[in-house]
């Protein structure tokens, strides 16, 4: 149980899982719905214990389907998934014991209070009364919900619901925490606060899998991520490595107009041998260059241009974003995707 005097929340000891080194593992997971939609098309990825792994992709890419299979809510059509060392289809109960889950929208019983919500979560995981009280107090304090613990969750704000939902998922100190779009619909302030909380939970050793369509979120939180599109993983790696893999940083040069009709052509000619011609393009502020490493390239560029009478009056450099990574592998911007949820046709 750790040091009782510790004021830091205690996430408990985690047993090392049997038969595999991975906390989460999927092998050629396929999900075809009754409607014929192929939501997952042979997805394979592995998450090591303690990692914070992200599935990044537009709405409808298959992220939620993957998560629902790993959370034992959905049967895969084929392929295998393992969580905490247990097969999600054949040993769902063992998986459920070790799993904490928070869904895309907080799923709370509006007619229970915050404390009752946590108590039920503890009961269903067979925690003892005394332990439940202690753990609930600890989580309510950690999530800054102490003041509203006795109020019905139906009266909570969006951010409070999120935090309570997360607290309920953490009650039994899960080995693996699965979060579907954890900050969807939150205001920027609540989002930043929740990120900090997730970072603390991750640092305490809990393996986390989260889905997101926010680049910034994936970039900040994830130690590793997979970009998923149309039910397939298009690329996987550490955010830094993925961005470096694009090998393109952008330098925008503002140039003193000296009467030349075609500045781009001038710059192209002058920089021959340093930057290939197709990487020099027009830009509203001047001329834009793509280079592998802007910091290394800039002094040389400036010397060459200055020595040839081109006055550089301003300079901007930008590093590639995950958005650029997504663009490179899918040919689209993630933001362009409409949030088109399928309409459920019932009868």
């Amino acid at each position: 149980m750790g040091n009782l005097r510790s004021r830091e929340p205690d996430f408990g000891e985690r047993k090392v899982s049997v038969s595999t080194d991975y906390a989460i593992e999927t092998d050629e997971l396929v999900k075809v719905y009754d409607t014929g939609t192929r939501a997952l098309d042979a997805i394979s990825f592995s998450v090591e214990g303690g990692e914070l792994f992200g599935l990044l992709g537009p709405n409808g890419a298959g992220k939620t389907t993957a998560i629902r299979i790993l959370a034992t809510l959905l049967r895969p059509t084929s392929g295998r998934g393992r969580v905490a060392g247990f097969d999600v289809a054949r040993e769902p109960r063992e998986v459920r014991r070790r799993l904490g889950l928070a869904m895309q929208t907080p799923t709370l019983d509006a007619f229970s209070t915050g404390r009752e919500t946590l108590e039920l979560a503890g009961r269903l995981h067979r925690m003892r009364g005394e332990e439940i009280r202690r753990r609930a107090d600890e989580l309510l304090e950690m999530m800054a919900l102490g003041g509203v613990a006795g109020k019905l969750t139906g009266t909570y704000s969006g951010g409070m619901k999120r935090r309570l939902d997360l607290a309920a998922a953490l009650m039994h100190r899960p080995e693996v925490l699965i979060l579907d779009e954890p900050t969807e619909g939150l205001d920027p302030q609540s989002r930043t606060a929740l990120w900090e909380e997730l970072e603390r939970i991750s640092q305490a050793g809990t393996t986390m899998l989260l889905t997101t369509h926010y680049m910034e979120e994936a970039d900040r939180l994830c130690s590793r991520l997979a970009i998923i599109d149309n039910g397939q993983i298009v690329v996987e790696g550490e955010p830094e490595a993925l961005k470096q893999g694009i090998s393109a940083e952008t330098v925008v040069l503002q140039i003193e107009r000296n009467g030349s009709a075609d500045e781009v052509a001038d710059v192209r000619r002058l920089l021959e041998g340093m930057v290939s011609a197709e990487d020099v393009v027009d830009h509203p502020a001047g001329v834009s260059l793509s280079v592998a490493n802007a910091g290394l390239a800039i002094p040389g560029l400036l010397r060459r241009l200055d020595g040839n009478g081109v006055q550089v009056t301003g300079l901007q450099m930008s590093r590639p974003s995950l958005d650029d990574v997504f663009m490179k592998y899918t040919g689209r911007r993630i933001r362009e995707e409409a949030a088109d949820q399928p309409i459920i046709m019932g009868w």
Binding site: R68, T72, L73, R96, Q104, T105, T107
Partner: peptide, 11 residues
């Protein structure tokens, strides 16, 4: 509301 799914993910 998704609450049923939440219950289904419990042991």
């Amino acid at each position: 509301s998704g609450y049923l799914d939440k219950l289904r993910a419990n042991p």
